[in-house]
Design a protein around this nucleic acid. Structure first.
Lengths: 223, 223
DNA sequence: AACCAAATTATACAGTTGCACAAAATCCGG
DNA sequence: CCGGATTTTGTGCAACTGTATAATTTGGTT
């Protein structure tokens, strides 16, 4: 909006605006960025498209972010924060370690897998990970954080079943479980028409249970 | 190269060229496209970058492909073909069904996970899947093909162990195993410094074995 | 009401992108 | 070695991109 000079009208009606707070505007720009990437990939997230979606003009982006790349990085971290928040919220009301692990798996594969925009945005970022060192660092931190979370849940569940595991075993279980969850999330998100609505989550529960030798499905599988 | 007019020299030394066959040029352009995407993501695969890497000028691309998007699609299919060829080649010398399954897993996680360019190229495509219907179709066909291949291997291995499975069970096993392989491939490719050289492949073998309740690791794990 | 700092808009600019098209080089059958 | 068809190059172009910066509006303070 407004990149080319005026043409017809003799007057230049400047767009009215309100002075929103800095945090509000930053959040709006980040949300707009994620929306753009989720809809059209990283290439669609141009400063003009982001600004238009946020209801501002493009110049404002540079007022709140030193560069577009910086905005992209912040948006990626925000997306990761959103994902981890969601899955951690599922742990709030759960006492039994096995139930906690099950709730976590269901949260990761249920709420997220059914939101194609989230996966699309994630995929957009992943496609740029190798060339952007800062994005790589964000990815590494979040991936390892996710695995630590899963490691803790798995360790607790195994201990509860009287099968406490040593560190290397726990590491292997964490990596494998993370892989199943990531893979199922990908499969379900990239090809949603190939699966039944809750099939991915059910499969994740079964798979993690098989990987660990635990019985997760029986405890409240229909919540 | 050659987008802006001449400047210094009064003569215009035109680049010499040879008339390569159509197939040669198409293959070179496809390979150049994959190289570009593998190095700098989809955004780096511009017509000029592709042409430069293929040793031609940009105009030739439009001579062999109706549009850049078409070239991207063809390159994606070519990448998938390469991946499946590699994993199928590993099945050549293997008789025992369990050994065949193990060889397949090792091929998927060994050769490919250690080639970051392949994963980078794949990630670049995945980031654009949602907005390009043709790319989506290619992805769907290849994903389902991969799963069918895995289903067959799993079915044979289970039958060989005297535990023949019905179709729904086989489907579940195939989806879960595909997820583990995809997830491990992603983990290892996106964060290679977080794993030991052959750790990913070993983990994949263990994970698939645990998912199916088979013993794959014992049979030639050190090949 | 007048002023000033901060927020926001609007415009400009150089570089890049995909594509179109004419000119030139190459190839190949006589 | 010539002549026509095909391949390949060279160049131009309109649209788009990120960034820079001046002009304008807003919101509070006095």
């Amino acid at each position: 909006m407004g990149d080319s000079p005026k043409d017809g009208g003799p007057v230049a009606p400047r767009k009215p605006f309100r002075n929103e707070g800095e945090e509000t505007r930053r959040a709006a720009l980040i949300a707009a960025t994620l929306d753009c990437i989720g809809e059209g990939g990283l290439q669609a997230a141009t400063v003009r498209a982001i600004a238009r979606r946020a209801g501002v003009t493009q110049g404002l982006i540079r007022h709140y972010f030193p560069s577009k790349d910086h905005l992209i990085e912040v948006a990626y971290q925000a997306l990761m924060d959103r994902l981890t928040e969601d899955s951690q919220a599922a742990l709030a009301h759960a006492g039994d370690p096995c139930r906690r692990l099950g709730a976590f798996v269901r949260a990761v594969l249920g709420a997220h897998a059914t939101d194609p925009a989230l996966l699309a945005a994630w995929a957009g970022f992943v496609g740029a990970l190798h060339r952007a060192p800062r994005l790589r660092a964000i990815h590494a931190a979040n991936y390892l954080g996710f695995r630590e979370q899963l490691d803790a849940l798995i360790g607790a569940a195994l201990a509860d079943a009287g099968r406490a595991a040593d560190a290397p075993t726990l590491r292997r279980h964490g990596i494998a479980a993370t892989a199943v969850l990531d893979g199922l999330w990908l499969e379900g998100g990239l090809l949603p028409e190939a699966f039944e609505p809750s099939e991915i989550a059910e499969l994740g529960l079964r798979a993690v249970a098989a990987l660990l030798g635990l019985d997760l499905a029986s405890e409240g599988s229909l919540t």
